[in-house]
Design a protein around this nucleic acid. Sequence first.
DNA 1: ATGTTTTTTGAATACGTATTCATTTGGAAG
DNA 2: CTTCCAAATGAATACGTATTCAAAAAACAT
Lengths: 332, 332
Amino acid sequence: MISSKDVAKLAGVSQATVSRVLNNAKSVKPETRKKVLQAMEILRYQPNLIARSLVTNSTKTIALISGTLKNGFFVETTDSIINLATKHGYKTMVYFEGEAKLKDIVDTVMGNKVDGILMSSILLDDPLFHEIEQSGIPYMFFNRRPRNGGNYVVLDNTMAGEMITKHLLDLGHERIAYITGDPTISTFLERKTGFEKAMREAGIEIDPHLVFITKTTVAEVEKITWKLMNLDEPPTAIICATDTMALACMDTIMSMGLSIPDDVSLVGIDDIKISSHRAIQLTSIGHHKFKMGEIAAENLMEMIQQGGRPKQPRQIVLQPELIVRKTTARRK
Amino acid sequence: MISSKDVAKLAGVSQATVSRVLNNAKSVKPETRKKVLQAMEILRYQPNLIARSLVTNSTKTIALISGTLKNGFFVETTDSIINLATKHGYKTMVYFEGEAKLKDIVDTVMGNKVDGILMSSILLDDPLFHEIEQSGIPYMFFNRRPRNGGNYVVLDNTMAGEMITKHLLDLGHERIAYITGDPTISTFLERKTGFEKAMREAGIEIDPHLVFITKTTVAEVEKITWKLMNLDEPPTAIICATDTMALACMDTIMSMGLSIPDDVSLVGIDDIKISSHRAIQLTSIGHHKFKMGEIAAENLMEMIQQGGRPKQPRQIVLQPELIVRKTTARRK
DNA sequence: ATGTTTTTTGAATACGTATTCATTTGGAAG
DNA sequence: CTTCCAAATGAATACGTATTCAAAAAACAT
């Protein structure tokens, strides 16, 4: 490998000078700068960023630890985040939860001295939160958040759950099914809380046989949907905690020969891209003005540029918005 | 930051010994190993992977330079690749084309001494190909390929274009529109070649007014679709070069109040996940047995483990498969 | 006890860069 | 032609680790 030393030798200067032209230091004679640049050209010199990082203690890298791309929501955030990081001149080290223990991922990421961390994969009461907090590395959680404190950007998920439920109640539904993921995740817990609140306020008892806590995979949602629609008294409406789950649910319902919303109303939360497709038209809850991924990334960039953590934690809560499409109808 | 020197001091040994326990060297007395481990524990020592990389000349990192996640195809490959890399203990540095010049990205990636490169973003005649080839870093292209040589995994795109066209011809269509992206990309060029071949063999003249070369954005596809369906004599079938484009096309057609396949047949290529959804049911071309992302990543891992480039280039061509769903029908 | 091998450890060095500090160069002022 | 100052450069060092080589310690045989 060609090093700055090689360049120095060829240009007849010291390695220090090569380093100087590399960093556009002012005090280098135009003449020698030219010599050095020529030598670089000739040797096709590429500075070793690893070595640079070691001495500057900055890697120009952020870590993204995200939920799976099987969930369309994370597709959109991943896309925004990486593009924004690239635009700012940062590299992005990406992990999706599932393949490795989260603790190991976080440790690796820290060992790599990233300049910042963007993370969705945090539980309500997660020991990792303290590890990250204590590390001193700038970070933002997005979509999910720890129970107390921390920097994050999330949807007002309780409100979201409440709004989507009220929409169904307004349409006259009472037998409403609810399919959700792991309640140790803030997103799922809060959305469900919103659902329960709306039902309680409407004075309607929740039928426990209509509430399912499950993995968010297509296979699981399929299974549950099938069970649900084969009940003696099936629900007249189904709420899925995410659009992605709702999509799987819709697929199953249609494959059973039933139609939406005639036989059953269906809603999700997140308002991912495909939900607005003319062939899907899923009623959902979104937050149309801002992209959550960009907000997370931009805030992280600010923190990094300001050289560390903010005095006050950044806690950004986006207001939900009901988007009524074609999968919900008045109860027959 | 805590370094191995600090650990050494606390444990009363030399830094070399700390390094030894870190790497599970055999020749270290159990007793001293324990001392060192305890010191690490107490100081919450995390090895600096940057420093390690500098000396070992291996970063345990691969770079993924991919097409945008707006294309569902790349969502699936990105997911597979990152998960597989993580499983193998590799970090993944991800870039999407668009935000920065590809040449700059490649240079950065090389400066970072990645152990391998996975890249979809390569043109048929791309100077970057030689740069990558000469760098000596193991790499695999996927989905697209350079014109001559290189390691890659692709679909047999010519065959794919041919098969999907024949399917429409078999259904009696003759006025077939074709919407495609940049033909300096092998994927688009080859699929179109396949289309032309099938038409020629069927003895049907291609109407140049029905062929559009365009950007692959939703907005562009929308515009073209709208033009197409407002023609005096609109096509009876449309081929989009990718499923993602077909999805945008479908959306537009439906929003014009037309129905698929009654008013017009529609097909794509790639067979992405959402295409099989009951509400979409897009006829497409896929390669069901293998996931392209995994193949690319697995081959790269092998190259890395074998310590470099293969003697023979790895050129893997997947056989396409027609998947008939509900967006194609016999011409009226 | 002595010599001999084997195991365990430490000192020194390398990796490629940025940076500090001292030295040299060149020019301006006298 | 000196003297002084600023500009330009080089030598040396640090970053945190792995590794080589030599030395010390331990184990073993005689």
